[in-house]
Nucleic acid binder design. Structure first.
Lengths: 221, 221, 221, 221
DNA sequence: TATGAATGAGCGTTCATTCAT
DNA sequence: CATGAATGAACGCTCATTCAT
């Protein structure tokens, strides 16, 4: 565990590994490809990693840790906004989302690695962990919003968190393949508008509302 | 006059292959595992498939074809409903979604195989194809709904189709891991309600509406 | 050993086998290639041959037997010629050689198969057998010729038979690759002239002769 | 600073490969046999050779290169001899032939490998290349000899080169199977005498000569 | 008998990992 | 520590041969 003589070795190897894993997938990637791309020896690789899989895990875990702290810091900022008016809250939501998507954009390589399970079944669970993580965050905010009266009383938080997190999940998947960064602020704003207001037009709303009334009536009966 | 081809051979092999691919991923799955699981010889495998990858492709393509015909037949039924009232349309939407999710449930093994890219980078594109396919279907219905006045005039079809299809995508991903089939009708109904009406409560709607009014005003100015 | 129902099967298979062996060599040739080329079933192949190698052996042995009878019949004709004058003898030699080379030409496929050892080490000995066979024939004729005074008294029969048979061996090797049959009579006549008279011009003959005289002298001394 | 490449590895493998190829032929030889015989790992084999065929090619090509330089150096020595008397020329011819046959003897393993086409059809062309190479050398010397008046004016160089080179070809084939080296000088001397003087005795020469006269007469007529 | 589907031993090659220097 | 040569288990695929019909 002594610090290796060349502190850049591990960094070089991790970057090279990320690139090679992305290109070929975990299984098809050869350690030799990685070391060649890093300009390092094969021995150096095994000095820093237990195995090929270990290198993969380190790449992903390091990203997840950084993502977590990104999310944490973005959630911290809610403190003031929540107390204030609704508009400020929505704006803070957007700001937070943009921040996280920005982070995803910066790390789209790893994200892709992760969402594609490293191209290997054994890490497929990472997709779910990533998704579940964002869904839990969503749930927390939704519950708070319902309590505060911002969201519908009868909101199915489970379903709503699923819809919202899957929308962001999908946006993240889109990001990771793009060459150029899209206007994240606009994307987030549109998303928010849509998720808040749904797709229904006035006519549909009437139908939906009447249904709700019917339900209420039948319950009373 | 020769020994007749065992008609079960290919079926057995495909089923075994699906199971083994699911357990180990395409790369880590050994042809020998598949043939052993199918109770067939290695030679039999290569009698029916060009290669391991070919078996994988056949599994997925056969599923996609069956999925397509499932979708097609479910879309055909819209004919009458569309002309009728709104409630009937919504019901048909739900019926169609349930039908497709039912199909996904029946084939959750292959779906998982596909969504996890066969555990291999070279088939990762299948995830996207699967997602894009459902998104295009969604778009078509949305555009029709906007024209018919069912959905908001200002609906961002791109974004809405993304949100909706990603929600179903996610539901499909959930399905493929479950042991017991959830109540699909309920799931679809909740999803529909949510996607149609959004998450916003009354207070939020006021804010949103006022924003819209502001926008309208600024446009008029 | 009962006669197979279709008496053409074996013939078809042998012809196809010869062609396939020629194209790919014994090892690389697949039984399936042979049966496909023969328009027969794999079962039929094993009905007539013990194994792939057996088919090869049968092809070669049948050729060698036919070659032997060709040679025998051509040697028989010497009976009368030998008793007669020298010119007739030489002519009979040529006629016999042409006859055998003609046979080689007709069977150039098998010859090539044999001379190339079936493309497999295990039949390499066939090259030598073929060569040895012709050399023994040559030796017999040479010994007779020496006794009859046709050839030099001091002829090294071993070496002469080697030279002669290797020359014919080489001609046979050339034949088996040609598309069009060369004028065998001319070839044989040239060969005979050359083998009988050597390459030396007058000047060289003097040197050779003087050497011989020297040798004789030194022996006398 | 790494483990230095074992300089004997490739040599060991080449020698082992030669032996195993000789015993079983290219196709039937197993890489594992070669590496076992060399006392090396299978990996080591593929460290030095692209494939089994590549190893074969390297063995043969290296031999052909060395043979070529052997031939070249032996032809260079003709310079002085040619200018001198006939006897010296013939002696130089013999010396050169002995030298080359000596080289063939030293490398009889590879020669056999080559002449037997590696036991595989795909390298059968090597036999012809080897033969053609020596025939071209022979032709060159013959043409020079005719011009110099050493050989018969009417010599059919094509046929003579064929006879001579095939004789040496055959001697080489004999060499490659022998356990003990024969007296090459004697062999070459006998060969030379025979090829120069032919097999014909006095009586035959008369006939041959009379034929020539007849031909001349008929041409005149 | 004739067929060709089925079998499975066998082998070439790869590549993660080790280790002598 | 750093290197990259060496190792050898592992696995995809082939194809001669068998055998049920």
């Amino acid at each position: 565990m002594s610090r290796p003589a060349d502190p850049h070795a591990k960094i070089d190897l991790l970057q090279a590994a990320e690139a090679v894993f992305l290109e070929h997938g975990l299984d098809k990637a050869r350690v030799e490809d990685i070391t060649a791309a890093a300009g390092r020896s094969k021995g150096a690789f095994y000095l820093h990693f237990e195995s090929k899989e270990d290198a993969f895990r380190q790449i992903v875990e390091s990203f997840l840790a950084r993502l977590q702290s990104c999310v944490d810091s973005s959630l911290k900022d809610f403190g003031g906004a929540i107390a204030g008016d609704v508009g400020a809250f929505l704006e803070q939501c957007r700001r937070s989302d943009v921040e996280i998507l920005e982070f995803v954009w910066q790390n789209r390589g790893v994200v892709r690695l992760m969402l594609e399970g490293g191209g290997s079944a054994q890490f497929g669970y990472l997709i779910d962990e990533f998704a579940e993580r964002s869904r839990q965050n969503t749930k927390r905010l939704l519950r708070w919003g319902v309590v505060e009266g911002l969201y519908r009383r009868d909101l199915d938080v489970e379903m709503a968190s699923l819809v919202i997190s899957s929308a962001y999940d999908r946006v993240a998947r889109d990001l990771m393949r793009r060459e150029r960064k899209p206007d994240l602020e606009r994307v987030v704003a549109e998303l928010q508008k849509l998720l808040l207001g749904g797709v229904a037009g006035a006519a549909l709303h009437e139908v939906i509302d009447s249904k709700v009334k019917n339900k209420v009536r039948s319950k009373r009966a």
